[in-house]
Amino acid sequence: MTFKLIINGKTLKGETTTEAVDAATAEKVFKQYFNDNGIDGEWTYDDATKTFTITE
């Protein structure tokens, strides 16, 4: 399955996707992406659209 990440950061904005077997696996991938890029904020997940959103 394809999961999308929408980034609404102070310095970084955009979208990316990842292929994962489930939302929990995608969450781990995206959290690592947050850490690697110094993004910290509030994030949500919409199961209907398989979209994670992080807002700094």
Score class of each variant (00 low, 15 high):
36 D>W: 10
33 Y>F: 13
39 I>Q: 04
12 L>H: 13
55 T>V: 08
44 T>F: 10
54 I>N: 01
49 T>Q: 04
45 Y>Q: 00
29 V>H: 12
25 T>C: 06
27 E>K: 07
26 A>K: 00
20 A>L: 02
53 T>N: 03
25 T>Y: 07
19 E>W: 15
43 W>E: 01
9 G>D: 02
12 L>M: 12
49 T>A: 05
8 N>P: 02
46 D>N: 08
35 N>I: 14
35 N>Y: 13
32 Q>M: 13
8 N>L: 14
39 I>A: 05
45 Y>N: 00
5 L>R: 00
41 G>S: 04
19 E>L: 13
43 W>M: 13
38 G>C: 12
10 K>D: 07
54 I>E: 00
40 D>N: 12
29 V>S: 04
14 G>K: 12
39 I>V: 08
23 A>P: 07
13 K>N: 08
2 T>G: 03
42 E>M: 12
5 L>Y: 02
14 G>E: 10
39 I>G: 05
39 I>H: 05
33 Y>L: 13
22 D>C: 03
44 T>S: 12
11 T>K: 10
55 T>C: 05
52 F>H: 00
3 F>Q: 02
14 G>V: 14
1 M>G: 09
46 D>Q: 03
14 G>C: 15
28 K>N: 07
26 A>E: 00
11 T>G: 09
4 K>S: 05
32 Q>V: 07
56 E>C: 14
42 E>H: 11
24 A>K: 10
2 T>I: 14
3 F>Y: 12
34 F>C: 15
37 N>M: 15
51 T>W: 01
32 Q>K: 12
55 T>F: 06
18 T>P: 01
26 A>S: 01
52 F>P: 00
8 N>V: 13
42 E>K: 08
47 D>W: 05
2 T>C: 13
11 T>Y: 13
26 A>C: 02
11 T>P: 04
10 K>M: 11
38 G>T: 10
4 K>L: 08
53 T>D: 01
34 F>E: 08
35 N>R: 14
6 I>F: 04
8 N>F: 12
23 A>E: 05
39 I>N: 04
23 A>F: 09
54 I>R: 02
42 E>Y: 11
33 Y>Q: 07
2 T>H: 08
45 Y>M: 00
54 I>G: 02
5 L>W: 02
6 I>M: 04
2 T>L: 10
24 A>F: 07
13 K>V: 10
43 W>P: 02
45 Y>E: 00
25 T>M: 10
4 K>M: 06
43 W>K: 00
30 F>S: 00
53 T>V: 06
3 F>M: 02
36 D>R: 09
7 I>K: 00
28 K>F: 08
49 T>K: 05
46 D>R: 01
17 T>G: 03
40 D>A: 10
4 K>N: 05
46 D>K: 02
45 Y>I: 00
16 T>D: 04
56 E>W: 13
51 T>G: 00
40 D>C: 13
18 T>D: 01
10 K>S: 10
12 L>E: 06
49 T>C: 03
48 A>D: 12
54 I>Q: 01
48 A>C: 08
16 T>H: 14
51 T>H: 01
1 M>D: 10
21 V>T: 10
47 D>Y: 05
5 L>E: 03
1 M>N: 10
24 A>E: 11
22 D>T: 03
26 A>W: 03
11 T>E: 09
39 I>L: 12
20 A>W: 02
26 A>P: 00
35 N>S: 13
39 I>E: 04
4 K>G: 03
11 T>R: 08
45 Y>V: 01
48 A>G: 07
46 D>T: 03
2 T>W: 10
15 E>Y: 14
30 F>M: 04
40 D>L: 12
49 T>F: 04
12 L>V: 11
39 I>P: 04
13 K>T: 11
30 F>C: 03
40 D>G: 09
1 M>I: 14
13 K>Q: 09
25 T>W: 06
48 A>F: 09
40 D>E: 13
27 E>H: 07
56 E>I: 15
4 K>V: 13
3 F>T: 02
37 N>I: 15
31 K>I: 11
43 W>H: 01
17 T>Y: 14
32 Q>W: 04
31 K>G: 03
24 A>V: 10
42 E>I: 14
32 Q>Y: 05
51 T>L: 03
16 T>Y: 15
46 D>I: 04
32 Q>P: 01
25 T>E: 13
52 F>D: 00
54 I>Y: 14
50 K>F: 08
24 A>P: 07
37 N>V: 14
11 T>L: 13
26 A>T: 00
55 T>L: 06
35 N>L: 15
15 E>G: 07
20 A>H: 02
45 Y>C: 00
8 N>K: 10
56 E>G: 05
38 G>A: 11
56 E>H: 07
3 F>G: 02
51 T>C: 03
56 E>K: 04
44 T>E: 08
4 K>P: 02
9 G>I: 15
33 Y>C: 12
47 D>E: 12
24 A>D: 07
19 E>G: 04
18 T>N: 02
56 E>M: 12
5 L>I: 07
27 E>R: 08
18 T>S: 03
47 D>T: 06
41 G>C: 09
12 L>C: 15
28 K>T: 08
30 F>D: 00
7 I>S: 02
1 M>Y: 15
23 A>G: 03
18 T>V: 14
44 T>M: 08
51 T>A: 03
48 A>P: 05
47 D>M: 06
24 A>Q: 10
23 A>Y: 11
38 G>I: 12
47 D>H: 09
13 K>P: 06
34 F>P: 01
8 N>H: 08
47 D>F: 06
55 T>N: 08
55 T>I: 06
47 D>L: 04
55 T>D: 05
14 G>R: 11
31 K>T: 05
35 N>Q: 14
23 A>Q: 07
19 E>T: 14
4 K>A: 03
48 A>R: 09
19 E>H: 12
3 F>I: 04
52 F>N: 00
6 I>E: 02
29 V>Q: 11
21 V>I: 12
28 K>L: 11
29 V>M: 10
44 T>I: 07
16 T>K: 13
46 D>L: 02
34 F>S: 15
9 G>Y: 13
17 T>V: 07
30 F>Y: 02
40 D>F: 14
18 T>M: 12
13 K>G: 06
32 Q>A: 13
41 G>M: 11
11 T>W: 13
35 N>P: 06
39 I>R: 05
7 I>M: 07
50 K>D: 01
50 K>E: 01
4 K>Q: 05
38 G>K: 11
19 E>C: 13
55 T>W: 11
11 T>D: 10
27 E>M: 12
7 I>L: 06
31 K>E: 04
50 K>R: 13
13 K>D: 04
53 T>K: 04
33 Y>S: 04
37 N>D: 06
32 Q>R: 10
17 T>E: 07
34 F>I: 15
39 I>F: 14
21 V>N: 08
22 D>L: 01
2 T>A: 05
2 T>D: 06
23 A>W: 07
29 V>L: 11
17 T>W: 13
33 Y>G: 03
3 F>V: 04
27 E>F: 15
16 T>P: 02
6 I>W: 02
19 E>A: 07
35 N>V: 14
14 G>D: 08
22 D>A: 01
39 I>S: 05
8 N>Q: 09
4 K>R: 13
5 L>Q: 01
20 A>R: 01
30 F>Q: 00
6 I>H: 05
41 G>K: 04
29 V>R: 09
36 D>Q: 11
33 Y>M: 13
7 I>N: 01
21 V>M: 11
44 T>P: 00
30 F>V: 03
6 I>C: 06
31 K>A: 05
16 T>G: 08
51 T>Y: 02
41 G>E: 03
21 V>R: 11
15 E>I: 13
13 K>A: 09
9 G>E: 02
9 G>T: 15
36 D>I: 11
12 L>A: 09
26 A>N: 01
10 K>V: 13
24 A>T: 08
14 G>Q: 13
32 Q>H: 06
31 K>D: 01
26 A>V: 02
34 F>M: 15
9 G>P: 02
27 E>P: 00
14 G>S: 14
17 T>H: 10
41 G>I: 11
40 D>I: 14
41 G>Y: 15
1 M>F: 14
5 L>S: 01
